[in-house]
């Protein structure tokens, strides 16, 4: 290879490597700074006490509970619908216009901005179905927002199950549904769970969809039913960062750190399951 060409190649690829570092490292540094600044706020009191004096003192316990409640609701709605849809698409759907329409709908749902889901939830659940701003309305909105992610990851998981298994089961006289339930679903389960956790962790961090459907800035007591309005960590963080005056810096960083820890924790679990599965398959 001529020297000029070699130089060009080395320079080019080095530039790309530098670019990669420049893009990733500062972001990691800023996240690291968040951990550093938020860490002092993470006391037992901060995590387990309700806020006092309009968020300027006390803890964030109701916001943590609210986010966990919304997340649970999201799971209850998105998981059955999402996995059911994926099973239909992979195992039953023929190549026809009906299937094409469903697929197009899913693609478009995945691209609908989260704030539009918020408007939709406000119109349908809060006002038309008269659920009011509540845990239920928020969970339904987040559930629908998460649905396309759950569908596509569950679909991938089902497609990864070899057809050999299906054929073997059918040839033994199993019905289609028996084959799906006893062979296909167990084999697809770990990657389905991974995908579901990734999707749901996204819902846990969403703010815009719950702003008009579920979240309130300041409710020191815990919700007693699904019809109650709740505090939620992402909305709480938004509020203390922009709308509520005189919140000490470390409390805002602390709330951000807790939110990040919950979401990243879920992601890490998902990645761990996937890695374990890969290793198992290699053995």
């Amino acid at each position: 290879m001529p020297a000029a060409k070699r130089l060009k190649e080395q320079l080019g690829f080095s530039a790309l490597a530098v670019l990669t570092c420049l893009a990733i490292v500062p972001v990691l540094a800023i996240v690291g700074m968040l951990a550093w600044k938020g860490w002092p706020a993470l006391t037992w009191e901060f995590l387990t006490q309700p806020p006092r004096k309009f968020l300027t003192q006390g803890g964030i316990f109701p916001a943590i509970v609210g986010t966990l409640g919304l997340t649970t609701g999201t799971i209850l709605i998105a998981l059955p619908l999402g996995i059911g849809t994926a099973i239909y698409l992979v195992e039953y759907a023929g190549k026809n216009i009906f299937t094409r329409v469903i697929r197009l709908a899913i693609i478009n749902l995945a691209g609908v901005p989260s704030v539009v889901y918020g408007l939709f939830g406000l119109g349908l659940f809060v006002l038309t179905l008269k659920l009011g701003r509540s845990l239920a309305a928020g969970a339904l909105t987040l559930g629908f927002l998460t649905l396309p992610i759950i569908i596509s990851t569950a679909e991938e998981a089902l497609l990864a199950v070899p057809d050999d298994y299906r054929h073997a089961s059918l040839a033994l006289g199993a019905t289609k549904w028996q084959t799906i339930r006893r062979i296909v679903l167990p084999a697809a389960l770990p990657s389905m769970i991974t995908g579901a956790i990734l999707g749901i962790s996204r819902a846990a961090g969403e703010t815009a969809p719950i702003m008009f459907t579920a979240a309130a800035i300041y409710i020191p007591s815990l919700p007693s039913s699904v019809r109650d309005q709740v505090m939620a960590l992402p909305y709480h963080l938004y509020a203390v960062a922009t709308e509520v005056p005189n919140v000490p810096d470390h409390m805002a960083f602390g709330a951000a750190l807790v939110l990040l820890a919950i979401v990243s924790g879920m992601n890490l679990i998902a990645v761990a399951i996937r890695t374990r599965m890969r290793l198992k398959r290699m053995r």
Partner: peptide, 27 residues
């Protein structure tokens, strides 16, 4: 029973279309 399962899953799959239409309708 087999057919019942199939149609039930088909109905579940239609939810996505329904949600998209509902979003459009409510906007």
């Amino acid at each position: 029973y087999e057919n019942l399962v199939k149609y039930l899953l088909g109905i579940v799959a239609v939810t996505s279309v329904l949600i998209l239409l509902l979003i459009f309708y409510f906007l």
